[in-house]
Design a protein around this nucleic acid. Structure first.
Length: 475
RNA sequence: CGGGGCGUGGCGCAGUUUGGUAGCGCGCUUGAAUGGGGUUCAAGAGGUCGCCGGUUCAAGUCCGGCCGCCCCGACCA
C-alpha cells in the first residue's frame, strides 16, 4: 500500500497539500515559497488560460507582453500603490556584475510599467479604448505561502484598459467581473458571489475593487478573481492625458483585472475528496481514461483494439488509453482516481464478449455498463452530467453555509464553527469592519451590487445599515 | 519576525539517549508467475548521514557555529 492521502476531516490543510503533491500538480522548488508546476498542474492551467483567453477576445481584448523589470521610480509614482506593494517586492540591485544606477523591481503587478507605455500611445480620444491583457508571471514576497494559493512567484493574467470616460471604464470593470463569474461557474463548476470590496480590502491604487468569492469545502472563502476600477489614479501618476472630441485635455480612465494560478487551488478545494483530485470535465486535461484488462497476449490485442475504437468514436473528448504493462488494473484505477480523471472506462475480456464497456464516475464512484455501440453518445453526456453535478454540489455547499447572523456575539460564535458566509448588518464604517477583522479574523468578502435592501442596525455600533454583507474567514 | 518540526540512498523514515562495520519500507533494475480495486516471489543497483569547525584511537551519534526547507501565526491574490 502506498501512503494514503490525509483525510479532510483529519487535517484539511494537510489534505490539500497531499492532493497537490500526490496528483503531481506541483512540487516544492528549492527556493522558499516557490513551486514547480508539474505537467498535470500545468495542463489544467493551460485549459484555464485557453478558456479565459477566448472570453477575453470575445470582449474585444488583445494580448501583449510587458517586461518583468520595473524601474524603482515607476512604483513610487502612485502613492497608495507604492505603499501597498513596495515592501513585498523582490528587487534587483546588480546586473552584469555591476551595481545598477536605478534598482529594478520584479513586477508585483504591471500597472506602473503599462501606464508608462500608455502615455506614449495615447494622445487622442481616437486612441481609446485600449483593451490589453497579458499572461505573465509576477513575484510578491509573501510571508507565508501555500502551493497554488499563495506562492512567491505565480502565473496570472492581468488586463489593463484605458478609456475616455468614467462610465465606459466602470462598464469594463463589471464586464470583466462577469467574465470571471461565468468562467468560474461554467468551467470550474465553482459558484461565486460577486460584489464590491470594502475600502479596507480594495486594491492599492484602485477607486473600486470588485471580486468573485468562492466557498471552499472547509467553508472558508477564496477570493478567486478581482476587477478594479482605477479611475484616473494611474493616468495622473503617469500623466496620461488625451484630447477629447470637444478639444479638452483629460486624464484617461483605467481598469485592471486578474486571475491567477490560485484558481487551481480553488478548483482543488472545491471538488476534490479523500481519494484524490476531482476535476470538472471542462478543465480536465484527460477527460476519459480507458483501462484495458487482459491476461493473455491475444486478449491484450483484442482489448486494445476495442479501446482504440472507443477512443476514435469519442471525437472532441480527451481520451487516454492506459496500456502500461507494468502495473495492474487495480493500481491504474487508483492512480487515475488520485489524479482526478472524470471518467474511467474499463474494458476486459468479459466486456468484449458482451460488447460493452464499464464506465466509472470519479465524482460519485458510480459504475454503469454501456453497449459499445452507444459509447459515442453516452460518454459525452456523462461528462456534462458530471460537470453539472459538481457545480450543483458546490452550489449546495455555498447555499447551505450562507446564513444571516443578528448580533456580534452570534457572529463570533459561528465564525469558526460552523463557519461559512455569515450575513450581518454593517454600518459601512471602517472602524467596525476593522474591529471584527481583528477580533474574529473574519472579513467582509464583498458587497453584492444588487444586495437586497434590508434596513437594519450595524452589529457593532448600531448605526443604520442598508443591507447585510457576508463575513467569512478567507484564504 | 515569533512559535513548532525536520534535514540520513529517488521518496518516507529508524538509528543519536549510552560514540565502535549505515539499516527498514516503498520505489528502481533483472527474471518468473500474476492481472476486473494499490499483485507475489527471487536476485540486484543505489548513501562523502544539510554545511563548517572542534573533542576523540574512533562521530550520523558529543560540543560550537552556520545554512536550508516545511507547518502554525502576523502580511497578502
Amino acid at each position: 500500500m502506498a501512503k494514503a492521502i490525509t483525510r479532510r476531516s483529519e487535517d484539511y490543510s494537510k489534505w490539500y497539500t497531499d492532493i497537490c503533491l500526490r496528483a503531481e500538480l506541483a512540487d516544492y522548488a528549492p527556493v522558499k515559497g516557490c513551486m514547480v508546476i508539474r505537467p498535470n498542474g500545468y495542463a489544467i492551467w493551460e485549459n484555464i488560460r485557453n478558456a479565459l483567453d477566448s472570453m477575453f477576445r470575445e470582449t474585444g481584448h488583445r494580448n501583449a507582453y510587458f517586461p518583468l523589470f520595473i524601474p524603482e521610480s515607476f512604483l513610487k509614482k502612485e502613492a497608495e500603490h507604492v505603499e501597498g506593494f513596495a515592501a513585498d517586492c523582490a528587487v534587483v540591485t546588480h546586473g552584469g556584475g555591476k551595481e545598477l544606477e536605478e534598482k529594478l523591481y520584479i513586477r508585483p503587478t504591471s500597472e506602473t510599467i503599462i501606464w508608462h507605455m500608455y502615455k506614449k500611445w495615447i494622445s487622442s480620444y481616437r486612441d481609446l479604448p485600449l483593451l490589453y491583457n497579458q499572461w505573465a508571471n509576477i513575484v510578491r514576497w509573501e510571508m507565508r505561502t501555500r502551493l497554488f494559493l499563495r506562492t512567491t512567484e505565480f502565473l496570472w493574467q492581468e488586463g489593463h484598459t484605458a478609456h475616455a470616460t468614467e462610465r465606459e471604464a466602470r462598464e469594463e470593470t463589471l464586464t470583466m467581473l462577469e467574465v470571471y463569474r461565468r468562467f468560474a461557474q461554467d468551467y470550474m463548476a465553482m459558484p461565486v458571489i460577486c460584489g464590491k470590496k470594502t475600502e479596507r480590502e480594495k486594491f492599492a491604487g484602485a477607486v473600486d475593487t470588485y471580486s468573485i468569492e468562492a466557498m471552499m469545502q472547509d467553508k472558508r472563502a477564496l477570493q478567486a478573481g478581482t476587477s478594479h476600477y482605477l479611475g484616473q489614479n494611474f493616468a495622473r501618476a503617469f500623466d496620461v492625458q488625451f484630447q477629447s472630441q470637444e478639444g479638452r485635455l483629460e486624464y484617461v480612465y483605467a481598469t485592471s483585472w486578474g486571475v491567477s494560478t490560485r484558481l487551481i487551488g480553488g478548483l482543488i478545494m472545491t471538488h476534490s475528496d479523500d481519494n484524490g483530485l476531482v476535476l470538472p470535465p471542462k478543465l480536465a486535461p484527460t477527460q476519459v481514461v480507458i483501462v484495458p484488462i487482459w491476461r493473455s497476449d491475444q486478449q491484450r490485442a483484442e482489448v486494445l483494439e476495442a479501446a482504440g475504437k472507443i477512443k476514435s468514436v469519442l471525437q472532441g473528448v480527451s481520451v487516454e488509453i492506459d496500456d502500461r504493462d507494468n502495473v495492474s488494473p487495480g493500481w491504474k484505477f487508483n492512480d487515475h482516481e488520485v489524479k482526478g480523471v472524470p471518467v474511467r472506462l474499463e474494458i476486459g475480456p468479459k466486456d468484449i464478449q458482451n460488447s460493452q464497456v464499464v464506465a466509472v464516475r470519479r465524482d460519485t464512484g458510480e459504475k454503469s455498463t454501456t453497449p459499445m455501440s452507444a459509447a459515442g453518445e453516452v460518454i459525452p453526456k456523462l461528462l456534462s452530467q458530471i460537470q453539472a453535478a459538481l457545480f450543483n454540489r458546490a452550489k449546495a455547499l455555498l447555499d447551505d453555509n450562507s446564513y444571516p447572523v443578528e448580533t456580534y456575539d452570534d457572529l463570533k460564535s459561528k465564525v469558526d464553527q460552523p463557519g461559512g458566509f455569515l450575513y450581518a448588518h454593517w454600518c459601512g464604517g471602517h472602524e467596525c469592519e476593522d474591529r471584527i477583522a481583528r477580533e474574529t479574523k473574519a472579513t467582509i468578502r464583498n458587497i453584492a451590487i444588487d444586495a437586497p435592501r434590508e434596513e437594519g442596525a450595524c452589529i457593532i455600533c448600531g448605526e443604520p445599515s442598508p443591507h447585510r454583507v457576508p463575513f467569512a474567514k478567507a484564504y
